[in-house]
Design a protein around this nucleic acid. Sequence first.
DNA 1: AAGAAATTTGAACATCCCTTCAAACTATGG
DNA 2: CCATAGTTTGAAGGGATGTTCAAATTTCTT
Lengths: 208, 208
Amino acid sequence: MAKGKSRQARRETLVGAARQAVLEYGTDAKLVHVAHAAGVTSGAVLYHFPDVKELLLEANRAGLERFYDERVAALATFDDPVEQLVVTVRNGLPVDSHDGSVRLLCELGGAAGRQPVYAALLTSLYDRQVAMYESMLKVGAARGVFRLASNALTIARNLVALEDAYGYRIIAGHPTIDRDIAVSLILDYARTATDNPLVINSEGDDEQ
Amino acid sequence: MAKGKSRQARRETLVGAARQAVLEYGTDAKLVHVAHAAGVTSGAVLYHFPDVKELLLEANRAGLERFYDERVAALATFDDPVEQLVVTVRNGLPVDSHDGSVRLLCELGGAAGRQPVYAALLTSLYDRQVAMYESMLKVGAARGVFRLASNALTIARNLVALEDAYGYRIIAGHPTIDRDIAVSLILDYARTATDNPLVINSEGDDEQ
DNA sequence: AAGAAATTTGAACATCCCTTCAAACTATGG
DNA sequence: CCATAGTTTGAAGGGATGTTCAAATTTCTT
């Protein structure tokens, strides 16, 4: 299947297959798994990516970027800092324990202790997410919507940290902490940190 | 080396070696690595643990328990809730990016998405740490030292979550977030959550 | 000290996995 | 339709790893 693709498209297909394989078998997924996910044999994969590790790295890097890009894109659809904050918190959390994006983050978090490349990628992602929240907080403060209890950087760091941690809990299938609970836990902090009730009044979207 | 040990002691030695191997090579460390860390050959390891996976599991379980036990032990040496809180937060964080205990937690966090056993172990650890903080907070509130901004469970969950997340950041070698920064970030939250400055005034122990 | 039991070794074996490569296949231009 | 370049296959090679096991070694018992 998938015969007449261009070189670039073929590589992207394989990167996608690799991402899938990592989700299923961990950061050191096997070449066979990637090949199977792509519907080809090992040799075909090697033809495009002579080094398997390079393919895995590319797949994981792409996965992280996609996660971040989607967050930014979702954020951009709102103007109200309150809406932005609430929606972004929710978006940063996995839907359930099978959520692919966050499971990838967790996988890489484990590998970061051994593989500096993944440590660097995750650190970069964290910093960018912090900057994202920091900007949101500062805009809200400038507009008088937020009255920040600490400096924006501190709050932003803590918000991303909470997201990360509850992501792990949800992926691990915590019996009582699902996405909604995690959202309310994080917003509990965000409320006191911003001195804002963080309620979206324009619609009937009630956070449990 | 290590000849005349009892069966039980021998197993513990091997479990320790396995723990070391996991830190170096990840959750799927190889039998050879364990054997080398223990100073024996593969066969000797298999004699005591016919299944390698079982040994790895036992090693990781033991590592988690030790982490928790040490926290509780350190906690027990203080009576003042403020001291308890500050010291416990610090103790939950890795000393640096090479900290063994926390690196193990990170490793397992990555594997939890695929292996339910590790998910269960980490969930249990999280809940016990939450209970630990919850108790601390309630005692402090009862004594009038803390005035909790939310219910104790919420604050406790967030405190452990922050610890976990900053543990990952430190293990990943974040350039600006070390243990001291992480402590102050977490205490920034804890201060508003407990309405207490969280300063230890009884001694001249200045955190670096 | 001698025999029995427990433990460890080291090698053999089977399996898995990455890599290479010649041959087969496909697409595309002439 | 042919020729050429690009792509994929499938098999073979080689290294690493888990497992088994008889022999060697050590420890325990008497």
